[in-house]
Design a protein around this nucleic acid. Structure first.
Lengths: 110, 110
DNA sequence: TTGCCTCCTGTAGATAATCTAGGAGGAACA
DNA sequence: TGTTCCTCCTAGATTATCTACAGGAGGCAA
């Protein structure tokens, strides 16, 4: 009990990943670290959400992967945004703004 | 295809309902109308989401129901917030602010 | 009094995103 | 040689939401 709500808002993970990869190509583990860091530890992505999401995005053609070596000389799969991914990011961002603004309107009503 | 993303951000429905009922007691159908109206038509709650959500909330003790007659003289189940519901609304609102602020941080990074 | 429309409640089943809880390979280092 | 850390991956469960129905009851018109 005292069940803590999820650390994410469901439906925003794809957008967060796309945005992070828009900053620079990165491997999956790095993406989750990066998001956590930028959000000051508020957004925590666990691996069971991260990797399926990356596959989803690659399936859709929004990101592309390539094996390489990480900073620590480990094998790592580097992802980068495709052109279609860029477009998708823009759309998802616009939709997010629209929905979150609407929610704020409700919260401030009365 | 061109699959439109959900009209809601998953996980925010309970908060929206609680907030609407905090404005004034209302029947279920009225709650969804109200949310749609306040959000200028952006947030649309369909019935298959609405009624299960109301049951969830009543189960948790956050709202209480009572049958009555609507403005149009139809039978309607009026819901009102309980004290625990008020507290829950505050918590969910705070959590929403925390998460949406974190997401904005990520979106504005770079 | 019949029929239809609107209001309002409800349910079953599918879908899909996320979480839990694991496993594994390989580099670095003691 | 053993241990730790980095990085990738997966199966199964959970749960919120959506789709697509059904039905009662009031009001109104013919």
């Amino acid at each position: 009990m005292a069940k803590t709500k999820s650390d994410l808002l469901q439906g925003t993970l794809d957008m967060l990943i796309l945005k992070t990869l828009a900053l620079e190509p990165m491997h999956g583990w790095g993406v989750s670290q990066r998001i956590q860091q930028i959000s000051s530890g508020v957004l925590n992505i666990n691996q069971g959400s991260l990797y399926p999401a990356l596959y989803r995005l690659e399936d859709q053609g929004w990101i592309k992967s390539e094996w390489g070596a990480s900073d620590n000389n480990r094998q790592a799969k580097y992802y980068k945004l495709t052109r279609a991914g860029r477009k998708q990011l823009d759309e998802e961002t616009a939709n997010w703004q629209r929905l979150s603004a609407a929610i704020e309107q409700v919260l401030q009503a009365g």
